[in-house]
């Protein structure tokens, strides 16, 4: 066991972890933050995407022990985030989720696209989404939702 200290959704957390404990299992099983889902454990499906130090990362192939000192933000930490509020409204309006299992990771990636690439066109949005698999929606609503949030932010002068 190794002692780690990190921030999770703004809260300081200190725990002993087995070095092999991956970040998502640590969050789910030890911190009871079950919003981040596990889909493949090899970094392909994107269900477990969350933010480490402000950037999207795969929590299934990150070890908790290697996140000592880091700041981690899970889907539960985005409740009041203004961009996420817009994205949630758009995902709901565009039917961008069905079973919801990929959705937390999808939203974290969507938020990254909206904030990092405010001028991205649809083709680029699709490319940026390629690391998040959804088996339900065919991505139609997801792409539409992201496009609509980006358009709304542009027309309101936000998003910069």
């Amino acid at each position: 066991m190794t002692r780690i200290a990190l921030k999770v959704n703004g809260q300081a957390v200190e725990r002993d972890v087995a070095p092999r404990r991956n970040l998502v299992d640590f969050l789910r099983d030890e911190l009871n933050l079950t919003g981040t889902n596990v889909g493949c454990e090899h970094g392909v499906c994107g269900a477990c995407t969350l933010e480490i130090d402000g950037a999207p990362a795969r929590s299934c192939i990150a070890f908790a022990v290697a996140c000592d000192g880091a700041s981690v933000r899970t889907i539960e930490g985005f409740d009041d985030d203004p961009v996420m509020i817009e994205l949630r409204a758009a995902f709901n309006a565009e039917h961008a989720l069905q079973c919801g299992y990929c959705t937390p990771g999808m939203l974290v990636t969507a938020r990254d696209i909206v904030t990092r690439l405010p001028d991205a066109d649809e083709a680029r949005i699709r490319e940026e989404l390629s690391g998040n698999l959804c088996r339900c929606t065919g991505y139609v609503g997801i792409v539409r939702a992201i496009v609509s949030v980006m358009a709304a932010r542009k027309s309101s002068g936000g998003g910069r």
Binding site: R28, G35, V38, T74, I75, F91, C99, P104, L107
Partner: peptide
């Protein structure tokens, strides 16, 4: 009609089997 089930799923409050404590 927009879906009633979306909100919990979008906020990481879905209740999948693996979430059971």
């Amino acid at each position: 009609l927009p879906r009633k089930e979306d909100d919990r799923l979008m906020r990481g409050r879905g209740d999948y089997v693996a979430n059971r404590r």
